[in-house]
Design a protein around this nucleic acid. Structure first.
Length: 550
RNA sequence: GCGCCCGUAGCUCAAUCGGAUAGAGCAUUGGACUACGAAUCCAAAGGUUGCAGGUUCGAGUCCUGCCGGGCGCGCCA
């Protein structure tokens, strides 16, 4: 990567000019303005203290040395307060095109993770109802992040943690049971905090079909049947929605199985041995306040039931200790932020490094329809299902929109805008660039340019502003990948792709690819092919298709 | 009351773990199709980065205090 090469050149120059001095952290960055070159470094500011010289003077001395790197730089300059600006030889960007063409799908792949084993747990919605729009954001983000991490050298497992145990499941079972009674003509009193969605009726019908004598069974047994069938049915529905959304998990992990394997009891015993729990008012408490939490938390309630927290500690303990993951990434809705300290505290208490758990909090999704904000609640059955979104908007546009914001930023999902297959919808802007390039190649093939030996193409014929800018943008892909991987931020790719597409459209409008001049035609086709490859690789990391025709 | 996140152009958002003159898209206004796809391009206009201090070569970014919004604060998950 060019950045790395510049960094090495700077380090070498420092050594030559100032001898062996301690070298603090410094940056090679891309300036916002083109007039400051392709890259810049703050090395002079960083060395100011130890050398006790004005930054400008340090920079000037270094530039004299750096200027010798003629093959790499076209120009090296000192700017105002003490920046050093680099203009990279355009030859570098043009030669890179051949690399892109040869590496194809693998162009941009880097080894940031060095094979580290990472578990990404996301969505993990309770199986108490269908996925809605908010889950969709987590699904898109988690899956895309997984793709990015795979691309940056991690060994990734995608996992869905199934909360198939506890109070909510009981309520779910009872909700179905009551609806079954109602369907059989009994008058029922449906409690306020039960699940009210229409899908509960569907499940009740299904239960009655499988167990016609359900209501004659003992109530406890009947509810248990309702609960099991409900969980299974809902989970299947969730799974099929996710698959349709191009989200495929490696592992579906049952909370209940943790108990059946005795993991939770083993963990509680471990905490007891370490003296980290105590009994109070009939409940078992964990001393989480000793580990950064605001207060102590209950593990076993006074009625003997385990809390969700107890299972979750065991779950995470197992992730690191038994399953050997180096890194666990959890994607949670931002409404769970209060839970982070608690869980990290538990890891600390167990002697595990809390930094190996990365919790990404994803802000809420606001649904806008007809310019109006719609509120959502699973219990009330008032929500837009992911299914509905996929029917109306489509997978590509939905994913692209979900991936167009930082996780810190709440997302307004304007369903009317998302449905529009027009310029207002940015996903098509990127896809259109890809389709346009495919169309050029189709034409090229018709004209007998089917097989091209790219090694013989003279890329130095590309000399216009738009051509160079596009080649540079293509080269930048590697940096974007690095940044997306480093910050767990797939949305950075979305912005990049819009930028790349823009650069392509500009080039396309100004220059004709297929012309009488065969050498130039081939060079421009190479530029287009490089762009196409990067568009496709990028879209692929977002889980969005790259259509050849639209 | 306490904690977390956010506040940037009319709207929706960027800004590379502190970098230079804060950028895009949409909307608005004006322009560009007899050649590879106009789902495109070009141009104009749009800002005291919520407010007030502080830290330093340098602050949208870090610290403190306010103001405004969202979300949490259970022996729920």
């Amino acid at each position: 990567m060019i950045k790395q090469r510049i960094k090495e050149a700077v380090e070498k120059a420092v050594k030559t000019v100032f001898g062996e001095i301690p070298l603090p952290q410094f940056e090679i960055e891309t300036p916002r303005k083109g007039s400051f070159g392709d890259y810049a470094t703050n090395i002079a500011f960083v060395l100011k203290k130890s050398l006790d010289l004005p930054p400008l003077e340090i920079a000037e001395k270094l530039v004299q040395e750096l200027y010798k790197e003629r093959n790499l730089f076209e120009k090296v300059e000192v700017a105002k307060p003490g920046f050093i600006n680099f203009w990279v030889s355009t030859r570098y960007y043009l030669e890179n095109l051949l690399k892109v063409i040869e590496e194809k799908d693998n162009y941009g792949r880097i080894n940031l993770g060095k094979g580290k084993k990472v578990l990404i747990e996301f969505v993990s919605a309770n199986p108490t109802g269908p996925l809605h729009i908010g889950h969709g954001r987590g699904a898109a983000y988690g899956d895309s992040l997984a793709r990015v991490l795979e691309f940056t050298g991690y060994s990734v497992i995608r996992e869905y943690y199934i909360n198939d145990k506890g109070t909510q499941m009981d309520i779910l079972g009872e909700s179905v049971y009551l609806r079954a009674k109602e369907l059989k003509g009994e008058k029922i009193n449906f409690p306020e905090d039960f699940y009210k969605g229409a899908y509960i009726y569907d499940i009740a019908k299904k239960v009655l079909a499988d167990y016609p004598n359900l209501l004659e069974l003992e109530k406890k047994e009947a509810i248990a049947i309702c609960r099991e069938i409900a969980i299974k049915t809902i989970l299947e529905d969730i799974k099929s929605d996710l698959e349709r959304f191009r989200v495929v998990y490696d592992s579906w992990y049952s909370e209940k199985s943790l108990y059946e394997k005795g993991k939770v009891d083993a963990l509680i015993n471990l905490l007891k041995q370490k003296g980290l729990v105590y009994e109070k008012e009939g409940a078992l408490w964990f001393r989480s306040s000793d580990f950064g939490d605001e207060k102590d938390r209950v593990l076993i309630r006074s009625n003997g039931e385990y809390t969700y927290f107890a299972g979750d500690i065991a779950y995470h303990h197992e992730k690191f200790v038994d399953r050997g993951f180096d890194l666990a990434i959890n994607l949670w809705g931002a409404d769970h932020h209060g839970y982070v300290k608690r869980l990290k505290g538990a890891l600390k208490a167990l002697g595990l490094n809390p930094e190996n758990l990365e919790v990404i909090l994803i802000q809420m999704v606001n649904l806008i329809e007809g310019g109006e904000l719609k509120s959502m609640s699973t219990r009330q059955g008032e929500f837009v299902e992911l299914k509905e979104l996929l029917d109306e908007v489509g997978v590509d546009a939905t994913r692209f929109i979900f991936l167009s914001r930082s996780s810190d930023s709440p997302l307004d999902f304007d369903i009317d805008l998302a449905k529009k297959q027009s310029q207002e919808n940015p996903v098509y802007y990127v896809q259109y660039a890809h389709a346009r390039i495919c169309s050029i190649f189709e034409k090229a093939t018709e004209q007998g340019l089917g097989e091209i030996n790219w090694r013989e193409v003279d890329f130095s014929l590309l000399s216009s502003e738009e051509e160079i800018a596009l080649a540079k943008k293509i080269e930048e892909f590697k940096e974007v990948i690095e940044s997306a991987g480093k910050f767990y931020a797939p949305y950075k790719l979305t912005y990049y792709l819009l930028d790349l597409a823009k650069q392509f459209h500009e080039f396309y409008t100004k220059h004709r690819v297929l012309s009488e001049d065969i050498s130039l035609t081939l060079a421009r086709l190479g530029l287009c092919l490089g762009c196409k490859i990067v568009l496709k690789n990028g879209l692929n990391l977002l889980g969005v298709n790259s259509p050849e025709k639209m």
